[in-house]
Design a protein around this nucleic acid. Structure first.
Length: 448
RNA sequence: GUGGUUGUAGUUCAGCUGGUUAGAACGCCUGAUUGUGGUUCAGGAGGUCGCCGGUUCAAAUCCGGUCUUCCACCCCA
């Protein structure tokens, strides 16, 4: 059996899936627009140099690089005798939407007035091994505001997370942390230059516990003295206020830690004014996020019974700097549409009534009758009633079956008799009842 | 990138330790019902058992490779 197939980690979406996917995209983009963000799109491909080095070592490995083509590929293949060493073209598939956005901002800086609020819903690609909630092609829904240092942006993004989750009826926890707090911790234990290693290890606290984290730190070569100093971090359970108080004692003396605490405090305080329930957001100092470019607040949204986050983001102070535009800070988050879909599907959160239904199907009795129906169809459609005529004069049974499977509410039969009398035989597919109606009556019954 | 796992009809799966024509359910098609679906009944069509190679008198079944699925690690939406 050699049926055609699609690449590993990619999926087709049939009509049933698309209805649900569009429900998610609609909900998200509606919220984005409501907060004043405007949509942009960027190419699927970026220059490889734009992407490399922005996501950390691991990220670079997962970028889909594109091979050279034609003569230049042949030339390179000949050069390497074993023929294995492939050479890359200038392009690679984008890994996320944030870096292409930063590139876009720098490139179009003269046409953009800051602060610039944009959203972007497009697929990204990662050369990853697929597993639960992890695909090689998936959609990210990004919202970012760039060119403003105000923490009100962070507050707004939390509101957006809260609103999207509420709208989709997803029960999830919004987690908040700050890279400056993590830097403060690293400083206090005397390992400032090992912040990434420390935070990556800390990030696994939920999964591997205190012992696991300590083991990893040991392996990474963090001094045992430093690890001992880190211990107060491990029992940080409690309210956000309680955690902040403890942080105050722990890292309040460092400049960077002090700043991080202040930022978190400010964000949490302002959220109260936005009617966000205090327990819907949790300060989690083990939240790290591997992406290298974050510098301030970091966010993540996790659901029970789902292995990975459905949304993540944070502030990046100098992503545009890499492309030559200094002193432009941005902050943004990204919803993973495919993971949201999986969560909603698992937990049965899609509304029952989102299937696109067909209001009316006309049975095709033959050429003359079909022609007659075309005029009626036009009238229905002019009234925004979704309707179609079965294209072939197939057997009645087949046409009825088609109507049934397509979820048609009504089937209209117009044969010789009906044409002669100027009347339509309308069958209600739910009750099975039939009635003789005029076109006006049919339109009326559909609109109601 | 590392480790494990899966692959049999359109779909979900059965097929014991290798042994004649590979099964079920659902779906699909036809008819009962030549202008009536969703129910019922009767019948029917679908598979070179992921692909390539090996062992054997004999392979869906054993072995190797490869691709794919799912899962864990790494990392992440």
């Amino acid at each position: 059996m050699s049926k055609p197939s699609i690449p590993k980690g990619t999926r087709d979406f049939g009509p049933k899936e698309m209805v649900k996917r569009n429900y998610i995209f609609d909900a998200i983009s509606t919220v984005f627009q409501k907060y004043g963000y405007r949509s942009i799109e960027t190419p699927a491909m970026e220059k490889t140099e734009t992407l490399l080095g922005k996501y950390g070592e691991e990220g670079d490995r997962l970028i889909f690089k594109i091979l050279k083509r034609g003569a230049s590929l042949e030339k390179d293949l000949q050069k390497s005798k074993n023929g294995k060493k492939a050479t890359y073209a200038e392009e690679a598939l984008r890994y996320d939407l944030t870096v292409p956005f930063a590139r876009y901002v720098v490139q179009n800086q003269n046409d953009i007035s800051f602060p610039f609020k944009r959203y972007q819903i497009q697929p990204v690609w990662r050369a990853d091994r697929p597993q639960k909630g992890r695909y090689r092609e998936f959609y990210q829904c990004d919202v970012d505001v760039i060119g403003s240092n105000s923490l009100l942006n962070e507050v707004e993004l939390v509101q957006i997370m809260d609103e999207v989750l509420g709208k989709l009826n997803i029960n999830a926890k919004i987690k908040l942390n700050n890279r400056k707090i993590l830097a403060g911790i690293a400083e206090v234990i005397g390992e400032s230059d090992r912040m990434i290693d420390i935070t990556v290890a800390l990030d696994k606290f939920d999964k591997v516990g205190q012992v696991g984290v300590i083991n990893e730190l040991n392996e990474k070569g963090i001094s045992s003295k430093a690890i001992t100093k880190l211990e107060p971090i491990f029992d940080f359970a409690g309210t956000n206020e309680f955690k902040l108080e403890k942080l105050e004692v722990l890292i309040g003396t460092t400049d960077i830690g002090r700043k991080g605490i202040d930022e978190v405090q400010s964000i949490l305080k302002n959220l109260i004014a936005c009617n966000i329930k205090p327990d819907s957001i949790e300060l989690d100092i083990t939240l790290a996020r591997g992406l290298n470019y974050y510098t301030g607040a970091i966010f993540e949204v996790v659901c029970d019974d789902f292995p990975s986050s459905i949304c993540g983001g944070g502030r990046y102070d100098d992503l545009t700097g890499i492309f030559g535009l200094k002193d432009i800070s941005g902050v943004g988050i990204s919803f993973g549409a495919d993971r949201i879909y999986d969560v909603m599907d698992d937990q049965n959160l899609f509304p029952q009534n989102i299937e696109t239904i067909l209001d009316v199907l006309f049975v095709n009795f033959g050429e003359k009758e079909a022609l007659y129906c075309l005029g009626l169809l036009a009238q229905l459609r002019a009234n925004e009633i979704s309707s179609e005529l079965y294209p072939d004069s197939a057997k009645m049974k087949k046409q009825m079956k088609y109507a049934n499977e397509k979820g048609a509410r009504k089937v209209v039969m117009v044969g010789e008799t009906e044409i002669a009398n100027g009347i339509l035989t309308v069958k209600d597919m739910e009750t099975g009842e039939q009635a003789s109606l005029t076109i006006e009556q049919l339109i009326h019954s559909c609109v109601v």
